[in-house]
Structure formats: C-alpha cells, structure tokens
Computed example of a mutant assay.
Amino acid sequence: MSEVRIAAEARTEFGKGAARKIRRADKVPAVLYGHGIDPKHLTLPGHEVLLALRTANVLIRLQGDGVDELALPKGVQRDPIKGFVEHVDLLLVKRGEKVTVEIPVTTTGDVNSEGLFDQQAMSIAVEAEATHIPTGVEVSVEGLEVGASITAGDLKLPEGTTLAADPETVIVQVIARPTEAPAEGEEAAEGETAAASAEGESAEAAE
C-alpha cells in the first residue's frame, strides 16, 4: 500500500468555535494517538483528507510542525447532509507492526440460476502489517447451488494477512428463488372457476 503525504499543522485552539473556524478555512481538525504518546491535536488540509479517505485503510504520512509519522484513520466524522469531513481520529503506526482492520469483500461470478445470491458481510476483520494492508479480498460464487455458503474461514487471504474475525461468519449464501404468487386477476379467475364448479356439482347432486 502506498503512502499519502499530508501536511500537518499543530492545533492549539479547541472547542466548537475553533473547529468551525478551521472548517471555514477548508481544513479538518484531527487527533493523532497511539503507542502511549500524548494525543497530538492537528489541523489538516480538507481537500487532501477527503481524497485520501476514498481509499479504505489509507496509510497517511503526516509531516510538518515537528510531526513525521505514519497513521491510519480510525474514526471519521462527516457532515450528515453535505458529506464533508468534520473530524478525523488517526492511529499512529510503525513499520512492521501488525494492526487489525476491516477490508472489503467483493464477489465474482454468478450463482446457479435457481438460486439468489445473498451477501451477508461486505467487509471482514483481518490482521496485517500496517504498511501492507490489502485493499480487499475477492471470492468467487460461480455456480454455487441453493443452500451453499461461504464463510470467513473459506476466504483466501493475501500472504501475510490473517483472519481476525470468527471463521464461521457467513460471507455469502445462496437462497432459493421465491415462488411467484398468481396475479390478482388470475386469483379471481381461479376463484370464479372453483365456485362455478361447486355450483355445478351441487346441481347434479340435487337432480
């Protein structure tokens, strides 16, 4: 995984008013923590942060104001309406150390025509080196029959990556297609036919 370099400025003003002022300048308040250090309060350029966060588990190289560290985003607050980043929590990481992260699970292929594909988990927790986090894991569902399933333990993870989730976690399952219910007109016609048939039988019995 490549690093994204982002300039960091030390932040000395706190509170809602200070945060609003930072955002008006198209910047993002952030906190860097981990490895037993005192949390470092930073200000980051908003546009660069927004672009970096488009990549899952992006590795960020923070540089500036006495800071030169690697970090992973661990908490991101966004504006619920406009979607811009309001605050970022960053976890300090070191080369060679392992971290637990969620990576996306994508599927390829098509299940048997008699079944419906149902993906239960869109991501899975794994442990990997901080500087070698996989972008995701791919699994084939080609030809799977109704009743078949794929669990976390079935996934083929990249080298150097181990599963951190319960191996019995269901990722994908194939369910039967629902039977089609008759349309309203068909139901009415069937009801009329049945009623007519019953009337005919009653008349025959009376004769």
Rank of each mutant, 00 (worst) to 15 (best):
I60G: 08
V88F: 03
A195Y: 10
Y33L: 04
A125G: 00
G153M: 09
V49G: 02
A18Q: 10
E142Y: 02
P80Y: 11
Q173V: 07
A52E: 06
T162P: 10
V141M: 07
G96A: 08
T169A: 10
I103K: 00
T12I: 14
R54L: 06
E102R: 03
V4H: 14
A128D: 06
E187G: 02
A18E: 12
A188L: 15
S123K: 00
A196F: 14
I6S: 07
T43S: 13
V4R: 15
K98I: 04
S140T: 06
A130C: 04
K156Y: 00
E3W: 09
V28Y: 04
A194T: 12
V93I: 07
I37N: 11
P134D: 08
G66E: 13
I103A: 01
P167D: 08
E192I: 09
G143L: 12
I175V: 15
V139T: 11
S113F: 12
L44P: 02
K94F: 08
A194D: 11
T179W: 08
I60C: 11
P134G: 07
G160K: 09
G136C: 00
A125P: 00
H87K: 07
L32P: 05
E201P: 01
I22H: 10
A188E: 15
L53D: 00
H132I: 02
E190D: 13
L72M: 02
E3S: 12
S123A: 01
R54K: 13
I6F: 11
V28A: 04
D26V: 03
A7R: 15
S149P: 02
T162F: 13
E184W: 08
F14Q: 11
M122D: 01
A205P: 01
R78I: 00
G115V: 11
L72C: 03
V76A: 00
L70C: 06
R95L: 13
D65F: 13
V4D: 09
S149V: 05
E138S: 09
A152Q: 06
L155E: 04
T108N: 03
D26R: 15
V105I: 14
E204Q: 11
K82Q: 14
R54G: 05
T106H: 04
T107L: 15
S2I: 05
E207W: 12
Q119S: 03
V99P: 06
P104A: 00
G36H: 09
S140L: 05
V111C: 14
G17S: 14
V146Q: 13
P80D: 05
Q173H: 12
G200E: 15
A52I: 04
R5I: 13
Q120G: 01
E204S: 10
P182F: 13
A18R: 12
V4I: 15
V146S: 10
G66W: 14
P167I: 05
E86L: 15
G147D: 10
E145W: 08
R177N: 06
E186M: 13
L163P: 06
P45Y: 02
I133S: 03
A56S: 04
V111K: 10
P134S: 06
A165R: 07
M122K: 03
D68T: 07
A196W: 12
E69L: 09
D26Q: 14
L144P: 03
R61H: 15
A183N: 10
D68N: 15
G200D: 14
Y33E: 05
G136D: 00
D154I: 03
G147C: 12
A205F: 08
P158L: 09
T43Y: 13
Y33A: 03
A165Q: 11
